[in-house]
Computed example of a mutant assay.
Amino acid sequence: MSPYRVLVVDDEADIRTILALTLRRAGYEAALAGDGVEALEAIERQPPDLVLLDVMMPRLDGFETLRRIREGRASAQLPVILLTARAQLADRMKGFERGADDYVPKPFEPAEVLARVQSVLRRVALARLASPLIGPLGDWFSAEGLQQLGRDLEAAREIQSRLLPPVPPTLAGLGAGGVVRPSTVVGGDFFDIVPMRERVGVAVGDVSGKGIPAALLMVMTRTLLREIGRELSGPGEVLTRLNASLCRDMPPSMFVTMVLAVLDPERPGQVTLAGGGHPEPVILAAGGPSLVAVGGLPLGAFEEATFEEAQLTLGPGEALVLFTDGLVEGRDAAGRRPGLPRLLETLARRAALGAPALVEAVAEDVLGWSGAGLRDDLTVFVLKR
């Protein structure tokens, strides 16, 4: 990354030299101008990242120079720190009214000027990170607009939470529990309970990315899944049909991973599984936890993809755990990734719990070691016989 470029504008050569040396020693590039006219010409040729602007100069003083900088389309947001011996409150207020970002009275210590430059440039860096949002927000980028956006996001979170189905105490003779914890206001993780003719399906999915785009695609995926599930009863054929639909409508570079478990109320404990690029489910049995290989490609990426099925039967006291990668790919406060071993250890330690309590225990464990907060959405669903 190239260093920040600071334009020093002062009619005194000694001050220009001192400030230029101070800035260059701190790793900045320094350009020089002797008055306001030279400054405006320099800004037009090559806009700097910040201007140190003296107020009392010949030809064009600092206040008038600042006014013209703010009127320029390309320079209107350029950070400006005023340097002046006119330290009266009225003069400082005049500078701020013209759009100055900071004010350093003369005589000054070079270290103080450097500290002010660093502080303003930190704000510039944050503004640059936010700039991709400002364009799309348009007229929303105002105090009132951002408040409305906040209210809309809260409403979106409420709507998304209501889309999650209530989890009954039992599904097809198995105890059930599920939880979703988004890493942002809205997210792309979900679980669903899908009527499938005489059977019932439990789906856990994860849309690539986070936030609003992932949340919108999650709703689309869930709607398609429910429509397709009404007509079919095998998880492999459901995912094949869903994949074909998503390939037609999915934006480039986005995809969905999913595992679908189909339960038969006539055969409690019998589960048929199919997966698409999703973390492998875990069977929690007397001998300890183990993985169920389901394989499959992510949905929405390859139209020709097919999805094989796996069958298993849960014995008394055994559980099937479906989850998203937020449980195993996050990092703790030290930057370590506890991963799948930590999840399996937690499941083994809490194996005696019922499905709802086991879900909460797993989620709380992840929230505990993740420290500052989730970096990815988290979903877990447990079926226990």
Rank of each mutant, 00 (worst) to 15 (best):
P169I: 09
A293D: 04
Q88T: 15
G288Q: 08
R98K: 14
T346S: 13
V259D: 02
A76M: 05
V219R: 01
G62W: 06
P213E: 05
V6K: 09
P166V: 09
V294F: 02
Q148F: 06
D10I: 03
A352G: 11
R25H: 14
I43E: 07
D152M: 14
V382D: 06
S142A: 04
M250A: 12
V271R: 00
E227L: 08
G62T: 07
S370R: 14
F255H: 14
G27R: 13
L260T: 01
V321Q: 03
I159W: 07
V180A: 04
L297N: 07
T223R: 03
E71D: 13
P289R: 00
V259I: 11
G95Y: 03
Q160E: 10
S290I: 00
L171M: 09
A42E: 10
T313G: 08
W140M: 14
Q160P: 04
A274V: 14
P3I: 02
A90I: 10
G288C: 05
E227I: 03
A76E: 13
S245Y: 00
G178T: 05
T221C: 13
L66F: 10
E360R: 15
V180K: 08
P281A: 14
A176D: 02
G34C: 12
T240G: 05
L164I: 03
S119A: 15
D11I: 05
D189H: 02
P356W: 07
A31N: 09
R230F: 01
L174C: 13
P251Y: 04
P47T: 14
A348W: 08
P289T: 02
P47A: 15
V200G: 05
M254C: 01
P47L: 15
P165W: 02
P235H: 07
G315F: 11
R241E: 08
G287A: 15
D332E: 12
L126M: 12
R68K: 14
R59D: 12
L374E: 01
D91C: 06
E97T: 15
L82K: 12
V185K: 01
A100S: 11
L358I: 07
R128K: 15
M196K: 05
L284H: 02
